[in-house]
Design a protein around this nucleic acid. Structure first.
Lengths: 331, 331
DNA sequence: CTGAAAGCGCTTACAG
DNA sequence: CTGAAAGCGCTTACAG
């Protein structure tokens, strides 16, 4: 920067202004500085800039895993707002571990991000303390039920599952199983299970233990779950899976075994990934605003970084049940 | 940090040492400092630390898009090495635009990352200059053909496609179409197309213009492409798609239209995503070391950051053709 | 094993 | 519209 200043015949303060507040520099001076920057191949050091100004252009985000397209969509929404605003994304994956999440929050806060996005409302106590005392805007995502550290944007996982069960029952299904995602360290999965259970109880439908299984996120786990459940519950007429990958794994398995979907068994999923509309029969599922979660979270963070208040601090983006062929009952 | 030092009754240098070189501090002193850190809730400021030490614990990575599981796998491999080594990931998405890539490289380099990962070997001239003069290790990924800025890790997209066409021809296919990903700003897609064309020519198979189509990354585009190609080329007996999503979109479309795969038409893909083994019939495809690309790229960067040389600088991880039911010819 | 001094490369008030 | 001085919160030699 000193070099640029010397070549342009100005002070380094002026170089700084050309970069950050170009309007405050005379056009002729600005030209000279810009030429000098070009000539030297000067790349500003924002580490120094951040230290001096006490603010960075970095937003930190923590997701359970990047290899799941639903979080990738949220990150996409996030960067679509962040990048034009001149912010960079510092990304971490917790692997669905609250302990790892707390460690990553510690490491990320050391980088002094301007804002922080985390997934879910369940965190280690240490993590909550860190987030509360960090002095930066924090947004929790993918859930709106519970006590937020600061802001939150998502939808009710509870209601989405509750409503799907009501819909399945309305279509004539009586014996409805649920394949749950691992609930350990995952408040969204717990809410979904709770929604299923409440609806079943409220509707007076059978509540046998064999009707609920926990399964990891994979096609294979969906296939295995549907096999086990069909074996254990002969009068099973619908399986509702906590995500589309499980549901599609179950669907493919039924195809392989000659089980007609929806003739012999209905299958419903959750997320509405692109694949859900492509399989045959099309998969009934819950459409989730996953891109919008990222976009709105970014918008809220940017607003607060700019010193403007955000209202509402808890933003429920809702969901939509998408009925396709996989749950159509004859008659 | 001053506060911590005062409470522990030491100088700030000692606090710094407790954090960075704990072995060099007497155990009793270390204890006192650690207690003080706990008491104050001190979170180190690595912005200041980075400026003073002139190195950051950040690695920057640029991928075309995060909403494609193949790049998500590479990022996963990257973070699996980076996180244990104490590095953070600064992530950007170029949207398959070389211009946006150059802009992002400028912005990311301002953050003074310790290393940089980019996708492909094709870049804007300005981007190449920036990367060469940045003074940090750079690794280009997903391709090993062409002139690398610094290091590269990937596989030969050309050979993979060439070999798949040879395999299809060996199975008795004569009229083989190719659905290409958009080649604009994508050297991997261009290499794949080139591999297809070379093989067709070398094998003396038909080279009609209607046998090559360009299609965006979606199930829908795969469906549309196979429809068009079947309409224009009546004796078509195989369609090779440049990625599995296109291939599976084509496969589902054939199912909907009652076209038997592989009886009436064979379909092959590229990537070997988990879905490829799940669909019925299973999809013949090319297995790509996408996780390993990220892991090896991270390893190479870490090695160079530690001042150790990396050899070979261009790492070809190979590929594997996975034959499933979608290309089995009767007889 | 511990500390005083200098400095990393910028930006922030403040002046003119 | 432009600049001199101070300082952001650490680490790096160097000394003892």
């Amino acid at each position: 920067m000193e070099d640029v200043a010397r070549i342009a015949g100005v002070s380094s303060i002026t170089v700084s202004r050309v970069l950050n507040q170009p309007g405050k520099v005379a056009e002729e001076t600005r030209e000279r500085v810009l030429n000098a920057i070009e000539a030297v191949g000067y790349v500003p050091n924002s580490v120094a800039g951040s230290l001096a100004s006490r603010r960075t252009s970095v937003i930190a985000a923590l997701v359970p895993t990047i290899t799941n397209s639903i979080f990738a969509d949220t990150i996409h929404g996030l960067t679509d707002v962040l990048t034009p605003a001149g912010y960079q994304l510092l990304l971490g994956a917790t692997g669905y571990s609250l302990e790892r999440e707390a460690q990553l929050i510690t490491a990320l806060l050391a980088q002094r991000p301007a804002g922080l996005l985390v997934t879910g409302l369940a965190h280690a106590e240490r993590a909550r303390t860190l987030m509360k005392s960090a002095g930066i805007p924090v947004v929790e995502t993918w859930n709106v039920q519970g006590e937020a550290v600061d802001m939150a944007v998502g939808f009710s996982n509870y209601r989405a599952c509750y409503d799907m069960v009501v819909r399945l029952a309305g279509n004539g299904h009586r014996c409805i199983g649920f394949v749950c995602a691992p609930t350990e360290a995952n408040d969204r999965a717990r809410e979904r299970l709770r929604g299923y259970r409440s609806a079943i109880r409220d509707l007076g439908l059978p509540e046998r233990a064999e009707l609920v299984r926990e399964a990891k996120f994979s096609f294979h786990a969906g296939a295995e779950s549907v096999n086990r459940m069909r074996a254990e519950v002969p009068d099973l007429d619908a399986v509702f899976c906590a995500n589309d990958i499980l549901a599609i794994g179950a669907l493919f398995e039924c195809q392989r075994r000659g089980v007609d979907v929806p003739g012999d068994l209905s299958i419903a999923g959750f997320d509405d990934v692109e694949l859900a509309s492509q399989v045959n029969p099309g998969l009934t599922t819950v459409r989730i605003p996953r891109y919008e979660i990222g976009r709105e979270a970014a918008r809220m963070l940017m607003q607060r970084v700019d010193g403007r208040p955000v209202s509402p601090g808890i933003l429920d983006l809702g969901f939509e049940i998408v009925e396709r062929q996989s749950t159509v009952r004859p008659g």
